[in-house]
Design a protein around this nucleic acid. Structure first.
Lengths: 200, 200
DNA sequence: CATCTCGGTTGGCGACCACTAACATCAGGC
DNA sequence: GCCTGATGTTAGTGGTCGCCAACCGAGATG
């Protein structure tokens, strides 16, 4: 309705599309819904993105960049490898806004679509995420605060797997899977297993 | 094409539908594809299931029963709690046929659909899976082979999360996330963390 | 004021979706 | 050998999908 310069409209479309994709999935979301969520008519979408798929891929790429940036900002606050790893786990983008909504989108798309371009965007994104995490694990291992029993590479993948699984269960609407009756969280478990010490 | 008694046709439909749903997702799969995969025409589906959703829910429920049965058969081979837990982890239905295909279906549906009946079926399924796993963890804790530091409940959820995350990454087509260059697998990591001892 | 650019809308396209009415055909009991 | 019921097919239905051609109007520029 209201007029917006192209770059702002594009950003807004990505923002509102994230909410819609998170709730309805990639193929479940219709272009009519995407337009309505942004408060514009359908052809506006096609002025900024050449297709629904194109919009989705742009969303995945933006999410990837924002996630890495958020992590880097969090880790910039300390140089202690153990603290950095603990912060990495606690700044899980599955848990903390604004990644939470975005990652439901990514988790949905991972399993749902077999369009080659979408898969390529997701594979690329997860590869970068893993590389970042594995790098921090390696650093913590070199500093001697994490056991070298398993490679940083494999440990990184397990951490990614837990995060994706957590996101998928949350997307389903399960509420009991992130903590137990004593208020201990999954993050506590992971941190303790990795660093071998108690928090709280 | 060839005539089949109703119960066999129904079983075959569930079987072939699993493959289609695994590749295309729930809303991505069309009834035409489901029919073609079974080698029959579309109306046959509606003779055995009242809707596509109904067929899908039946598939989820059957998968749940088969998974629990497969685990029980595996665990029946030993009474040692540590060995039982190790077997549970290694008989991960994400890894072992025939669960592998089925679980790609379930992982996809978890994030994709917001149809209440489908979500209810999935929530129920995952609840049963978790209860089974948490029960084995509890048993291992009582026997003293697993630390009591974290509740069996929470530990069970983390195991479910790893399994779901593993399934999602596998569904994406990633091949490098299950093991490192030394041939150590995610299962090895989980088993070692839980039981604290080395295998192989 | 005339013009032109840019961000918006209406209306509708061809394709495909889940689902169905009506009809065909085979197997077995009599 | 005919009837009957279960298993199959053909040929659609109305509805919805992603996408687009054509047009509209505000406001900056001269």
């Amino acid at each position: 309705m209201a007029r917006l310069p192209a770059n702002q409209r594009r950003a807004q479309l990505l923002d509102t599309a994230a909410e819609v994709f998170a709730v309805r999935g990639y193929s479940g979301a219709t272009t009519a819904e995407l337009a309505e969520a942004a408060g514009v008519s359908e052809p506006i979408i096609y002025r900024h993105f050449k297709s629904k798929k194109d919009l989705f891929i742009a969303l995945v790429e933006q999410t990837g960049q924002e996630t890495i940036q958020a992590w880097q900002a969090e880790l910039a606050q300390t140089t202690d490898p153990a603290d950095r790893l603990a912060r990495l786990i606690r700044a899980n983008p599955m848990l903390v806004d604004p990644g939470r909504v975005r990652y439901r989108v990514i988790v949905a798309a991972m399993t749902e679509t077999n369009e080659p371009e979408v898969r390529a965007a997701l594979t690329d994104h997860l590869g970068k995420l893993h590389a970042f995490i594995a790098g921090q694990v390696q650093r913590a291992q070199d500093a001697g605060v994490v056991s070298k029993r398993f490679s940083a590479e494999l440990t990184g993948w397990v951490l990614v797997q837990v995060a994706i699984g957590f996101g998928a269960l949350t997307a389903l609407g399960l509420t009991s899977h992130g903590h137990d009756q004593g208020g201990i969280t999954v993050d506590d478990v992971i941190t303790a297993v990795m660093l071998g010490n108690k928090k709280n």
